[in-house]
Simulated scan of single mutants.
Amino acid sequence: MNPLRKHFDPDTPLPIELVLRSTKNLQSELPDHLHDWHEIIYVHSGAGSFFINHSFYEMQAGDLYLVPGNTIHRTFPHSEEPITSSAMFFSGHYIQSSAIGKDAYSFLRCFDLAKSGRNYRIELLPEERARIESIIDEMSEELRMRQPGYRQAVMLLLQTVLLHTNRKMNLGEPRQPPGGSRPLWLQSALDFIDAHLVESISLSALASRAAVSPSYFSRMFKQLTGMNVTEYIIAKRIMHAKELIGGTDHTIAEIANQCGFESLPHFYRMFKKFSGSTPAHYKRIDVRGL
């Protein structure tokens, strides 16, 4: 199953969406998906597994997850105790950085820290849980009533969540390693793919490193990540390409080569498949800051 591109309208006057207290099950949950918007997930109750980028987590009530834009992720709800969660989606360009006087402040710093530290989960204390649940409910009410100034109110509420999240991550609390009973060879394989993304990576080579048969490796990889090996590698390469398109002046051909694609036509086909647009169109949107 290919990763699903969750679509958001870049031209909406309020590039923020809230999914309130949604209960997930195996039938309703999206397959592996990625999107350019950032996402904050708060778990109200239930249990499940969460795969994000290259890490696995056992979800529980009170967890807060930070999903940077352009990141593969998927929830695997437990059948007997499905997850109920709220999710806030928003455009990073819309939040931006703000400055008062000479002090610049990035509301997105928590996402940068999560990505660099390879840890996307924050465990909240009871008082922190009560605060974010109150903010989520207030945001939902603003979106429902749509009174004058509701867009500004929703923005301020989201910035409040990001502010408190940044402060909590700045406390330097010891990070808990991702939970779960996944085989060590799988995490090693995910790390190897990240480190050698532009090189030729075959299923047989990955299986040999893991000391398991290719068929077993393929079956377990799909079962535990929701994607087959080829789909996962291509998706990661496209994610890397999008970062280069938005952050460098390299040509599309140069970026395709730097991301491990042997031909430009293949790169264009895969980019359109995983992103829904051509590289040139994506670059124009990124430049516009939408």
Rank of each mutant, 00 (worst) to 15 (best):
N170T: 02
M139W: 03
T84M: 08
N70M: 10
P177N: 09
L162F: 05
V154P: 00
P68N: 10
M155W: 10
R74M: 02
L162P: 01
F90K: 07
F89Y: 15
P183E: 10
P177C: 05
N70Q: 09
Q159P: 05
P68A: 07
I83W: 01
S97I: 13
L171T: 11
T75C: 04
F192Q: 13
S134R: 15
A104Q: 08
F89R: 05
R182D: 04
Q152C: 07
H164R: 14
E81I: 11
K102E: 15
L66C: 03
D63I: 06
S98T: 13
L156N: 09
I52C: 03
G172Y: 05
G180D: 04
Y65L: 02
L157G: 08
N170Q: 08
A61T: 12
E133F: 07
S188F: 03
P178G: 15
K168I: 10
Y94G: 05
Y65T: 00
D112L: 13
R121K: 09
E123P: 06
H73V: 01
F89A: 02
F111E: 03
S134N: 06
M88C: 14
N70H: 13
T165I: 08
S116G: 01
L158Y: 02
L124W: 04
L163T: 12
Q152T: 11
R182F: 08
F111D: 03
S97C: 12
I193R: 11
N53I: 06
Q60E: 12
D137T: 12
F107P: 00
M145N: 12
A130M: 14
P82W: 15
M145D: 06
A189N: 08
L163H: 08
Q96W: 07
M139C: 04
H54R: 14
S49I: 01
Q96A: 09
D112I: 05
H54I: 09
T75P: 03
N70P: 04
I135Y: 10
Y120E: 03
F107C: 07
G117N: 12
L158F: 09
Y65Q: 00
F51W: 08
M169T: 04
F90L: 10
A114K: 01
G179F: 06
L143Q: 02
R182E: 15
Y65S: 00
R146Y: 05
K102W: 01
